[in-house]
Design a protein around this nucleic acid. Structure first.
Length: 480
RNA sequence: GGCGACGUAGCCAAGUGGUAAGGCAGGGCUCUGCAAAAGCCCCAUUCGGCAGUUCGAAUCUGCCCGUCGCCUCCA
């Protein structure tokens, strides 16, 4: 069964086939870092990361482009208000975003184009649009003439009449039509600018950078690329406008064979957005939650569905994931013991789930079903395809940050629990041996039937996020 | 006003014509000095409501109720 994907362009689930044999080209609309990124951004990009991994699983050579719109009205405004260079602001927020995505374990992008590095390509495209009658110049900029693109509104399933009837379109005297949108904005005093002869210095409008960068990096011949992605809120007007700008200049449209959109994330039942202010910065959230638990949470819900985020949902996801970790550890022990793993239809079941429009929720159910008996190597492989990369900690269990500070905290906890002399015995030990040492001390106390001391030692570890499990084979530990 | 999505157990959620996956929580058992996020087991005669189509519907149609999104910067 081949991969089937929902295509916004046709509003159906279609069999995915690349335009070029064995090769998939993806363009995902990235961040406009004029403010801090939030979990909603992460959800979208995390999905495309998994899609990309699964395409690689299917044997395709994938070229993944995710842009940075490092010039826009908001960052310029923020720069003016704070007296800083707008680009310093953009770089700061983008750096923070990249660090968050690194923690979430996304693969590096093949291309990470910055709009301001493609001014030449952007201007070339605007020039072509102007010369072919799709653009016109006004006092404050250059606009796209929507009336020249017959299929405008097709992606978003709107018709021009409905759009024009919409009460929310701003009236702009200079535009020929309220639907027309800016390609180039002439610079006002104090604003960043690039020369553009013969039209006038200024900066690109919002949508043109994606059209220009996608063409430059994925489709120089103008015959289209495979997948164009983004959040569902980009369908209109952003992606509609990208199509309008690109397709009239192409040798053979469509711009992208598949348009794939991720469902939005709600918080307090409202769309999570910087403009609504109902969000916690992603970087803050990642300080409080296990990044893998966040990925697990997203995998539990269909990527196209609107999803309401709650703190409890991450906690529940983390608990569910801990079960898989337990199974992973068990599978590793089986492998190490050399017991022959029974071949299971795990692979076929996982593929069937993911082939069905990336049904990751069904895939997780398969994982839960097979976890107890899955061969270690296969379990590891599929977790990786889902973007959950097991690391050393899965086997040794230091999900809690076992840094140098850990031992200090453990010592403090032992003091707080009044376990005499125990803290001193951890001197100069690394986290792992320190935990083993405490477990040994507890075993000692248990042998002496000193239950009070035994429980205090266990409680001290618990304070540091380490949970003990007594089994017939001895005491093991996990982190909460 | 136009376009669209969603409403499945206490919570999250898969399932789009053949008789309700999975996770969390909850309950039971095993192990245990106690305990646990360990292992095993149980937990929706029912899918927002009402009609209809059908041998058969959570799945299709119509109406109604509720929630959200896009149409303005947005992943």
């Amino acid at each position: 069964m081949p991969l089937r994907l929902y295509n916004t362009r046709t509003r159906t689930v279609e069999k995915f086939e690349p335009l070029r044999e064995g090769e998939v080209r993806i363009y995902v609309c990235g961040l406009t870092p004029s403010a801090q990124a939030h979990l909603g951004h992460a959800r979208s990009f995390l999905f495309f990361d998994v899609l990309r991994r699964y395409l690689v699983h299917n044997g395709y050579r994938v070229t993944y482009v995710q842009n940075v719109t490092d010039i826009d009205d908001r960052s310029i405004k923020a720069g003016i208000e704070t007296g800083r260079d707008y680009h310093a602001i953009v770089e700061y927020f983008y750096g923070e975003f990249k660090e968050s995505m690194r923690k979430l374990g996304t693969l590096e992008y093949d291309f990470e184009p910055y709009a301001t590095k493609y001014i030449g390509e952007i201007q070339q495209m605007i020039r072509e649009l102007a010369e072919s009658g799709h653009a016109y110049v006004t006092r404050d900029g250059m606009y796209y003439r929507v009336s020249t693109f017959r299929s405008y509104g097709r992606l978003a399933n709107r018709n021009i009449a409905d759009l024009e009837a919409g009460a929310r379109i701003e009236v702009d005297e200079q535009k020929e039509d309220p639907l027309d949108f800016a390609l180039w904005k002439f610079a006002k005093p104090g604003e960043p600018r690039w020369p553009f002869e013969p039209y006038g210095e200024g900066r690109p409008g919002w949508h043109i950078e994606c059209s220009a960068m996608a063409r430059a990096l994925l489709d120089p011949p103008g015959t289209g690329f495979d997948i164009h992605g983004g959040g569902a809120d980009l369908i209109f007007p952003h992606h509609e406008n990208e199509i309008a700008q690109s397709e009239p200049l192409m040798a053979s449209p469509p711009m992208a064979n598949f348009w794939v959109h991720g469902g939005l994330l709600l918080f307090d039942n409202r769309k999570m957005a910087k403009s609504l202010g109902n969000f916690e910065p992603l970087s803050d959230l990642l300080r409080r939650h296990d990044p893998q638990a966040i990925r697990w949470l997203f995998l539990q819900t269909g990527y196209r569905k609107v999803m309401n985020f709650t703190e409890d949902s991450i906690t529940a996801a983390a608990l569910g994931l801990s079960k898989i970790k337990m199974a992973y550890r068990f599978a590793a022990a089986q492998r190490d013991a050399g017991s022959p793993a029974q071949p299971l239809p795990l692979d076929a079941r996982m593929e069937a789930a993911l082939d069905d429009d990336m049904n990751t929720a069904a895939a997780l159910a398969v994982l839960y079903e097979f976890a107890a008996n899955a061969p270690f190597e296969r379990l590891h492989y599929w977790l990786t395809i889902l973007g959950i990369e097991p690391n050393e900690s899965w086997l040794n269990e230091p999900v809690v940050e076992l840094t140098g500070q850990f031992v200090q905290r453990l010592q403090a906890a032992l003091e707080a629990e009044r376990v005499d002399g125990a803290a001193g015995k951890l001197e100069s030990l690394e986290p792992h041996p320190a935990i083993e040492r405490v477990i040994a001390m507890r075993a000692e106390a248990r042998r002496a039937k000193d239950w009070g001391a035994s429980d205090r030692l266990r409680d001290a570890l618990q304070r540091c996020g380490v949970e003990l499990h007594d089994t017939k084979e001895g005491t093991s530990w996990t982190t909460s």
